[in-house]
Amino acid sequence: MSVATIAPRIAIKNVTPEVSSAMSALHEAALAAAQAADIAPGLLQLIKIRASQINGCSLSLDRYTQEARAMGEGEQRIREVRAWRNSKLFTCGERAALSLTEAITLVFAGQVPNEVYAEAARQFEETQLAALIWAATVINAHNRIAVTTRLEGSGAPPNAVAR
């Protein structure tokens, strides 16, 4: 079995450094908001993993699963993020955050359902909810850049997308 080679399309960070810098600043601001709101770093990793799974971004998925492992996240929970609804390994708060992440990621399929938003609002304080929305939005933007520019896999140039 041969592995398909997917050539990167554009080194976007090099072509539009000012936009890449702004994206990096947005990423840092979203992380700072999550930290200030006391969002557990592990929950942010779960959000990044789930959005990356949905978006088919292997580059991000590899990165965020490795980071989750380094933070002490268990292999079984990492594997079960894809099927979190059928797993007993996630807390009510994690479930609400993953559901909200899916709704944000799949917003084209309808709006973020009221019940999804309401459950997230029950589980998290307003500053936490805002931080989760930003985290999901930012990872989706990163995924879309990586997928569009075909930065899928370890052969991608490290400077092709701002992270």
Rank of each mutant, 00 (worst) to 15 (best):
C92D: 11
Q53Y: 08
L59R: 06
E67H: 10
L61R: 03
R85N: 09
G74K: 15
S99D: 13
A51C: 12
T105V: 15
L89S: 05
L61T: 03
T148G: 10
A51L: 11
E75I: 12
I49C: 10
F124V: 10
T148S: 10
R63E: 03
P8I: 14
I145L: 14
G56R: 09
F90T: 08
S20W: 03
E94F: 00
L59I: 11
A25R: 04
Q123C: 15
D62S: 14
A156E: 13
A83C: 12
E115K: 14
R150M: 13
T91Y: 07
T105R: 09
R69M: 11
A7D: 02
L59Y: 15
A135M: 07
A22I: 03
A141E: 07
R122H: 14
D62R: 13
F124D: 05
L106D: 01
W134E: 06
A118I: 04
I10Y: 07
T148W: 10
D38A: 14
I54C: 04
G74A: 14
E126C: 02
N14A: 14
T127L: 08
L129M: 04
S99G: 08
S2T: 08
G42H: 13
S52R: 15
A120N: 02
M1N: 01
K88C: 01
W84E: 01
A109G: 07
L46K: 10
A34G: 10
I145P: 00
S58Y: 10
A70S: 11
I39A: 01
L98H: 06
S2K: 10
Q111L: 13
N86L: 05
T149P: 01
R77P: 02
I145Q: 07
A141T: 12
R63N: 06
F124N: 02
Q111C: 04
N114E: 11
A135W: 00
G93Q: 07
A33I: 04
Q53A: 07
A120R: 01
R163H: 07
A103S: 11
N159L: 12
A103W: 09
R9V: 15
G153E: 07
R79I: 13
S2D: 04
F124S: 03
A97K: 00
K13Q: 08
V147L: 07
A118V: 05
I12W: 14
A33N: 06
S24A: 13
W84H: 06
R85G: 03
E152M: 15
E28W: 09
A37S: 14
A136V: 08
I39W: 00
N86W: 08
I6N: 04
S52K: 13
G93W: 00
L132Q: 01
R150D: 08
K88F: 01
K48D: 02
N86T: 04
V116N: 03
S99L: 01
L132M: 07
G74M: 10
A36E: 09
A141W: 11
F90Y: 09
W134R: 05
L31I: 08
R79G: 06
I47N: 00
Q35K: 11
N143M: 11
V15C: 02
E75Y: 07
A109Y: 12
T148L: 12
R150Y: 05
T149L: 15
Q66W: 06
E125V: 02
G155C: 05
R122S: 12
A51G: 01
